[in-house]
């Protein structure tokens, strides 16, 4: 029976610094491992204080190269404990990964529009 397994980023990488692609790969491996076992995955951002797009690309963006978007949607439940800005970065990375893996030449177009309205005063 399919169960939901929580993967806490800070536990997998041993710190609150989700900054390097190599640590992102650790999270990717943990997620892919649970998917291969037929489980659902809940990613928790609890205690993750720093985050880069390089880390998120390696941790979750690459999932879209391995699995279809429908498959990813069916096995990943909504993330928890993420601050708004972390969710926004996650969304940017996911949107870009979807486009890249469906059509690698068309990536650059989506970014400027999304990042352009990034900040507000």
């Amino acid at each position: 029976m399919m169960k939901t397994v929580t993967i806490k980023i800070s536990q997998v990488i041993g710190s609150g610094y989700g900054v390097s692609a190599s640590d992102g790969k650790l999270v990717y491996n943990a997620i892919a491992n649970e998917i291969s076992k037929g489980n659902r995955v809940l990613i928790s951002f609890e205690n993750t204080t720093r985050l880069t797009t390089a880390f998120l690309n390696a941790a979750v963006g690459q999932l879209y190269g391995e699995f279809s978007a429908d498959k990813v949607r069916s096995v990943l439940v909504p993330p928890e404990d993420a601050e708004d800005w972390q969710l926004h970065r996650l969304k940017l990375v996911i949107d870009r990964a979807k486009v890249f893996f469906s059509d690698p030449d068309s990536v650059s177009g989506i970014i400027s529009s999304e990042v352009g309205g990034d900040d507000d005063s």
């Binding site: 978007a69 990813v72 949607r73 990943l76 909504p78 993330p79 928890e80 993420a82 708004d84 800005w85 969710l87 926004h88 996650l90 969304k91 996911i94 309205g117 990034d118 900040d119 507000d120 005063s121």
Partner: peptide
């Protein structure tokens, strides 16, 4: 003293 990233939160429910 600007507040950054206040208008572009994503929703966890449909993020994937």
């Amino acid at each position: 003293r600007k507040l950054y990233d206040i208008n572009n939160a994503a929703t966890p429910d449909n993020i994937w």
